[in-house]
Design a protein around this nucleic acid. Structure first.
Lengths: 177, 177
DNA sequence: CAATTATGTCAACATGGCTGACATAATTAT
DNA sequence: ATAATTATGTCAGCCATGTTGACATAATTG
């Protein structure tokens, strides 16, 4: 543990407050707080919460995602996931398909309805990001992307990179199973 | 509500998936997920959670912050705050001082112990940010700051700007009251 | 003196995390 | 072939942290 210090006492030994990136720490907090507030308002109209948002987002973005992979991405337990996933399946936003190679696996897909919800939730977030890029006069958006990617634990960056190049497959409510 | 569409159907009317900033949306999710994981590990050793972290962070950064202001920043109810704030006061990380002008108000200060904890929690986050800036080759860190600030709701940006220029006052466990 | 304000507190409830235990079906290893 | 492992599901209960509503107190303001 770190025995911290202020300017006046035990100089040199420990963390000094002015060496800490407080500004960026707080900016991340505030930016994320408001970034998540947009979809929250929409979700409550559906009787869903933030947990549903995360699930439907990643299933939409990574069609055919398996349950174990989703757990890795969300960093929650299967029992936590089960609750919200069941609701999303029961209400027709997500469907499960038996894995073609390994029939124990369940591939997850959004339905048309689920796709529409995922887009509706992403839209205000997307608008906020665009407006911020413009307002901040970001000429090279790649800088932002590189910075945020570098904030992710190196061993978990494969998850970031696994996103589809284009919009992936989607299963209609009626199709397959 | 937004009737969303894919490439093939009802063109022009609605949101197209490839117009959405999915990459940055996900990067924000992943970056924030790992950004908060560092302090979480430390907090659990103290029997505290993320809610305690937020309180002790803002009280450390804005010495003399009043309860109502803290509620505005955290966007939670006073009943939610009361639980964690009481614990932090009872365990000697935060003290309350009666407002000098208005004696109904309670100014919040970290104790020496609270200051040390706030720094210990901020340290890994600060390291992560520095490493990310370097790894991403960010030459002008102001770009990142401007972007994140622009992500905050305009009417709430005063909260962002209210941070102290230097390290603010702190009250020792014994002093005042 | 009345109304308003800042704060605290009690009670009840919801969401979304967690652990532990156990069940099933399918795959893989011996 | 059978045993072990794996992917998933499910039951039950607990915890942290958010919510609403109601009410209390003290201090300030009109």
């Amino acid at each position: 543990m770190n025995t911290s210090t202020t300017q006046s006492e035990e100089p040199g030994t420990a963390v000094k407050a002015d060496e800490i990136e407080f500004t960026l720490i707080e900016l991340l907090f505030f930016a994320y707080r408001d970034f998540t507030s947009d979809p929250d308002a929409i979700l409550s109209q559906y009787g869903f919460g933030r947990a549903h948002h995360r699930v439907i987002h990643f299933v939409n973005r990574r069609p055919g995602l398996r349950v174990a992979e989703l757990l890795d991405v969300l960093r929650i337990t299967k029992q936590s996931l089960a609750r919200v996933l069941k609701q999303l399946i029961d209400t027709g936003y997500i469907v499960q398909v038996q894995g073609p190679r390994d029939r124990r696996q369940r591939e997850l897909y959004v339905t048309k309805k689920g796709h529409a919800l995922a887009l509706a939730l992403a839209l205000p977030q997307s608008r906020r990001i665009r407006a911020a890029l413009e307002e901040a006069g970001v000429k090279d958006r790649a800088v932002i992307e590189r910075f945020l990617r570098a904030m992710v634990n190196p061993e978990l960056r494969a998850q970031v990179d696994r996103a589809p190049a284009r919009e992936g497959a989607r299963i209609e409510g009626e199709a397959r199973e």
